[in-house]
Amino acid sequence: MTDAILIVILILMASVAAGLVRVAIGPTPSDRMMAAQLMGTSGIAVVLLLANVVEVTALIDVALIFSLLAAIAVTAFTRRRVQDNEE
């Protein structure tokens, strides 16, 4: 069972590493933010699976904070610039 969970974790980490390419090359900032959001969701999945492997149940709270973080980062990213409205 632990082996199966670890294999799933490895697949997810590989997918995160692939999404990293989009963060690096992404033509627009939106693309980079999208890739970062996918990394956040994969991070939640990895933390939850890791909680079963290393047997630390408190890691569920870390996943909760991860999901809050994604919302905060996207909202901060899509806010309009103040200076543009004044011109």
Binding site: V23, P29, V47, V54, L59
Partner: peptide, 17 residues
């Protein structure tokens, strides 16, 4: 900054590990 956010996410994964 976006790369820094991704870095922070992975560092949190390291602490979880």
């Amino acid at each position: 900054v976006i790369l820094y956010i991704a870095f922070g996410l992975l560092l949190a994964l390291v602490w979880a590990r």
